[in-house]
Amino acid sequence: MNVTFYWYPKCGTCRNAKKWLETHDVALEAVHIVDNPPSRTELEELYKKSGLELKKFFNTSGMKYRELGLKDKIKTASEEELLDILATDGMLIKRPITTDGNKVTVGFNESLFEETWK
Rank of each mutant, 00 (worst) to 15 (best):
E29Q: 11
E29M: 05
A30Q: 00
V31E: 01
I33L: 02
D35Y: 01
N36D: 08
N36Y: 11
N36E: 13
P37Y: 10
P37H: 01
P38A: 03
P38R: 03
S39F: 04
E42T: 12
L43M: 12
L43H: 06
E44Q: 14
E44P: 01
E45R: 13
L46H: 04
Y47L: 04
K48F: 12
S50W: 09
S50E: 06
G51V: 11
E53W: 00
E53M: 08
L54T: 02
L54F: 03
L54K: 01
L54W: 01
K56E: 14
K56Q: 15
F58T: 13
N59S: 14
T60Y: 03
T60F: 05
S61F: 09
G62F: 12
M63K: 14
M63Q: 15
K64N: 08
Y65V: 13
Y65M: 13
R66Y: 05
R66L: 14
R66Q: 14
E67I: 04
E67P: 00
E67T: 10
L68H: 00
G69F: 07
L70D: 06
K71R: 15
D72I: 02
D72K: 14
K73T: 15
I74M: 15
I74G: 03
I74V: 15
I74L: 15
I74C: 04
T76Q: 05
T76E: 09
A77C: 10
A77P: 08
A77F: 10
A77W: 08
E79M: 06
E80P: 01
E81C: 00
E81F: 04
L83N: 05
L83H: 02
I85S: 07
I85T: 14
I85Y: 04
L86Q: 07
A87W: 04
A87L: 10
T88F: 04
T88C: 02
D89A: 11
D89I: 06
M91I: 14
L92H: 07
L92T: 09
L92V: 09
I93H: 10
